[in-house]
Amino acid sequence: MTGRRPLRRTGAEGRRWLAFTALLCLLVVVAMSAVALGTITMPFSTIAAAIFQFDGSRGHLLVTTIRLPRVIAALLAGSALAVSGAIMQAVTNNPLASPGLLGINAGAAFAVVCLMTVFGSSTGDIYIWFALLGAAAAAIVVYALGSLGTTGQSPLGLVLAGAIVATFLTSLTTAVLIFDQSTLDAVRLWTAGSVTGRTMAQARTVAPYILTGLVAALFLGRNLTALSLGADASRSLGQNPVVWRGVSIAIIILLAGGAVALAGPIGFVGLVVPHIVRMSVGIDYRWVIPFSALGGALLVVTADIAGRLVFGSQSFPVGVTIALVGAPFFLYLARTRLKAEA
């Protein structure tokens, strides 16, 4: 018995705080660089001046109306997607789950496409509300369907219901788009997942939902770890799995619904970031959640910079960059880890 105090919070806990702080600093630097870099490079002094002493000059306008909203949208969407992905994976006990499995992306896309088909593409920011509502409605239908049946609610039922609803809604969306060329043109960029041309007003509209979701998710940590043991073990530990699964899904709707409304269905973040986080900090969701929030934000902001610089286009969709860069990176990680375990 060498470890007299085997669970004492010392080394591991301290290292995690250190890593968290380092990641936070890195995120701040990257986010500021994202505002600074572009066709015209902005010195940090100009950025600070534009935020705190706005004088209406062209440079200041560029910062406050184009660059800053874009970075804020990327931060919000990235953290929301990663955290909702982490929660989704714990709730369904399925490492491959992502918020899209709840039908959130399909619901949002369907609602936005319907709106544009009926009222035309110049509906302004109303589409954000439609995306949020569509996401929430789809997720609630999936949750209700997944709770039916004799055995009550099971993770598998939820995943199946999600796959069915998402496929159904996607088919409907595709059908509408085939017959309506103008809507297709308007939503094409949105459906790839993009933070181009986001406004402060749009960010402000979804920020309350995402921030509420993030704060709630931080308090969910320990309950998620218990929930991820499965319904029986969770109940035997005194947890009501049905209640906590419901709470978790409400938080997912806030987060992923907000993210998809703001930036469209950016794939991959919700799947990959929680994985990388669990590989590095372990499975304890009290840590997985905050690390996922930072990691997701960092990934989306970085990918957006990369898209702008490498592909040389201001409107290159960040969703595509993440898939292009993320897929090989994830494969590399999975391979090296498999080798390490072999």
């Binding site: 669970l7 006990n93 770890t225 991820s228 043991l229 499965g230 029986d232 669990r278 372990g282 499975i283």
Partner: peptide
């Protein structure tokens, strides 16, 4: 019983 991948004994 199934534990999520990577869960430690202490966890």
């Amino acid at each position: 019983p199934v534990a999520p991948e990577g869960l430690t004994v202490a966890d």
